[in-house]
């Protein structure tokens, strides 16, 4: 049937004022939590765990000396 969009029987109109994208909020907050977790994992485990890491000369001599 070409391009026609399938129209389910129970199609209803939801206007601007009655619509709260609660599902979107739920999804995007999950995404937020995932991003924060992965960021910390990548920075503190993958990156800092991959030493030796380049350090400034001043800081380095401070640590060694």
């Amino acid at each position: 049937m070409g391009q026609a969009i399938e129209k389910p029987e129970e199609k209803r109109e939801i206007g601007h004022d009655e619509y709260n994208p609660v599902g979107t909020l739920a999804l995007i907050l999950l995404y937020f939590v995932l991003l924060v977790f992965l960021w910390f994992f990548m920075y503190f485990v993958e990156f800092l765990g991959n030493d030796p890491t380049v350090v400034g000369t001043v800081v380095a001599s401070g640590v060694v000396g």
Partner: peptide, 12 residues
């Protein structure tokens, strides 16, 4: 976080 790495940990 990046600033902490640069200043706190001295990664230059």
């Amino acid at each position: 976080t990046i600033t902490y790495g640069a200043v706190g940990l001295g990664i230059s």
